[in-house]
Design a protein around this nucleic acid. Structure first.
Lengths: 119, 119
DNA sequence: CGGTATCCCGCTTGATACTG
DNA sequence: CAGTATCAAGCGGGATACCG
């Protein structure tokens, strides 16, 4: 009955790196940011075409989350039919350098034959 | 009954960036890599103290996964009691630059009052 | 066009207990 | 010391249907 773990001080590491990774690492999320960074502002339907396989539900969730996080701007034109455009905010653009470096490492490892371990 | 999404070509973006993020972004994972990068090789028990709140089960899972991914080296001395030491591999060390840059951005945003959105 | 609303299933995580 | 075993809970994500 000895405790299996050390009780956390509050409830999590509260590590800024962890917090940032938590935001950008949901499924499709990094890919979405990448697509917006590469192709500029896009409408909902265009994003769905640019990210094949994503469902409307998840695409909506991710975009709303990124909006709430201040990384993506959602602009809605109250026309008929409605027109909603998503773009990177200045803060979202700050991630580009990071993504580029990450991409360089990821692609090199890829070329070297590295593969993530299967679950 | 119109399909909700565009069928994926195969089954996923297969984006190298996504693959790398998938590996380093599990809960505790980045924190673990960070701890090993900052404090050098550590034994199981020490890691559990350095990462308060993590359970033995998850700590084991993460270390085994990182081992399988070639980012962490697991060295076991067949003594009694057993002694297992974890360290970063050369490939794991390649992440340090990335983590440092990530940290710089994360800490600046943190200082600016940025917080991740609640679920 | 750009979403919501449900239902549901599986994976991840957590808690607890036990061991070579 | 460094785990494994097991069970339960929660949430993310997919499928499907409908709406302003």
């Amino acid at each position: 009955m000895k405790p299996d773990r050390i009780p956390p001080e509050k409830n999590l590491p509260a590590c800024p790196v962890d917090r940032l990774l938590r935001v950008i690492s949901g499924q499709w999320t990094s890919y979405l940011l990448w697509v917006l960074a590469q192709n500029g502002p896009q409408r909902f339907g265009a994003l769905q075409k640019l990210v094949p396989g994503i469902s409307t539900k998840v695409l909506t969730e991710r975009l709303r989350m990124l909006d709430a996080a201040g990384l993506v701007l959602r602009e809605q034109a109250a026309t008929i039919p409605p027109q909603v455009t998503y773009s990177l905010t200045p803060r979202g653009l700050e991630l580009r350098g990071l993504m580029d470096d990450l991409s360089i490492v990821a692609r090199r490892w890829d070329a070297e034959g590295w593969r993530p371990p299967p679950r």
